[in-house]
Amino acid sequence: MRNSVNRPPTPDAAEDPGKEPTLQEIINIKLIESGEKERLMELLRERLIECGWKDEMKALCRAFIKKKGRSNVTVDDLVHVITPKGRASIPDSIKAELLQRIRAFLVQAAV
């Protein structure tokens, strides 16, 4: 990774040789590098639209903004309020499908 010229002198944890990357991190990097993460994201987006999850979240956001007044809401407020509901209402079938895809990727990538 190239450092920007103006980069502040913060320690870069990832490049710290003393620290071993965790398995989760390795998988994440593999997913990104292969472009599989992008494909998974696109698949997930499509599924969430199809099952009505996106519309449901949109309605929740609208209701929240209406309640608080449109100039008194930040994106962070929305994320804070909606995230728990959003996570809880993702259909299990979609989670299973993504898990299946990730497993298949790991087998094929021989991680």
Partner: peptide, 10 residues
């Protein structure tokens, strides 16, 4: 692969 400069999370 972008990662957080403070905690290294990607």
């Amino acid at each position: 692969v972008p990662r957080c400069g403070a905690c290294g999370e990607s």
